[in-house]
């Protein structure tokens, strides 16, 4: 009986969260003194209400989950599920691909963020200063994300202020588009603070050959490879040589020469998961 009451009280407390009015998890934390990680309702400037996950603990907290990039099929080449590049095939005539890095389209659910791609209105509505990134094994439930993550880090230099306050605005300055420039035209590389993992574990997540091309300890935006394909984010690393970023940067436009198109473009180039070559 005691357990039943506890569960009810727990649900009651969770449902009370729907009375909060805020545009970000930081506002909920600051205004309502909520310090528990979990799902909360947020409201956009236009009054649209949506639900997302708040990390209230990392580095003082108030982190709003706005997106997830999930690979449903590493063998798919810009096919269904490649929302962060293109679901319309590797196509020279669609240089932006699906365009989701710089539009107001939304998809997925917060609870399903490790099982499919996710993007909510916070992606373009929240004026933020810093970013945090978690790499969580596929299909893990929300209450285990933090513990299960293989890599967690955040920025702390308020770099987003310089780029309009969110990724929507940042990618207006640096379009994720095929043939927008060359390798030397990449966007900002921002130093990170590790919450789980370090520079060495970051390095080891990528292939033997990519390790000679990047420096760990950064998050980089809009990288461009030798073939002029654009990628959105190099997570944990800054490309410094070689320009073969398709092997270690995620998201992209709609065309990769010859056929490496995808949300995790060419992470499987050779010997997938064997720690050899480019893969």
């Amino acid at each position: 009986k005691k357990k039943l009451i506890t569960n009810f009280e727990h649900l009651e407390r969770l449902s009370n969260r729907s009375r909060y009015v805020a545009r970000s998890c930081k506002e909920i934390r600051d205004r309502y003194n909520e310090q528990e990680d979990g799902l909360y309702y947020l409201t956009t400037a236009n009054g649209m209400v949506y639900q997302t996950f708040c990390d209230m603990t990392t580095a003082g907290g108030g982190w709003t989950l706005v997106a997830s990039v999930h690979e449903n099929s590493i063998n798919g080449r810009c096919t269904v599920g490649d929302r962060w590049s293109s679901q319309q095939g590797n196509n020279l005539n669609l240089p932006d691909g699906d365009g989701n890095w710089s539009n107001r389209n939304t998809f997925g659910t917060a609870e399903g963020a490790t099982s499919d791609d996710f993007k909510n209105p916070g992606y373009y509505d929240i004026k933020a200063e810093d970013m945090s990134v978690w790499h969580v094994p596929n299909n893990f439930p929300l209450d285990h994300w933090n513990l299960a993550a293989i890599l967690r880090y955040h920025t702390n230099n308020r770099f987003l202020r310089l780029y309009g306050g969110n990724l929507f605005q940042l990618f207006k300055h640096y379009p994720v588009r095929y043939n927008i420039g060359s390798c030397s035209n990449r966007g900002p590389a921002v130093p990170i603070v590790y919450d789980h993992g370090d520079r060495e574990t970051t390095r080891m997540f990528y292939g033997l050959k990519p390790r000679k091309e990047f420096e760990p300890g950064f998050i980089t935006f809009r990288a461009i490879n030798n073939e002029r394909a654009a990628m959105a984010i190099c997570s944990g690393v800054k490309p410094i040589a070689g320009c073969n970023t398709e092997h270690y940067c995620i998201g992209g436009g709609g065309y990769f020469y010859p056929d490496q198109c995808g949300d995790f473009p060419s992470f499987d180039y050779d010997s997938l998961g064997m720690g050899q070559g480019w893969s």
Binding site: S24, C25, K26, D55, G62, W63, T64, L65, V66, A67, S68, V69, H70, E71, I74, A113, T114, S115, G122, I126, A128, E129, D130, M131, S132, V133, W134, H135, V136, P137, N138, W145, A149, I150, L151, H154, L160, N166, L167, M204, F205, Y206, G207, P210, I233, S235, H247, Y248, I250, F264, F267, D268, L272, G273, G275, S279
Partner: peptide, 15 residues
Amino acid sequence: ASKEMTEAAVLLFYR
């Protein structure tokens, strides 16, 4: 990249 990396979703947060 390692299988760990390709079989993990990348979650993006703002503050």
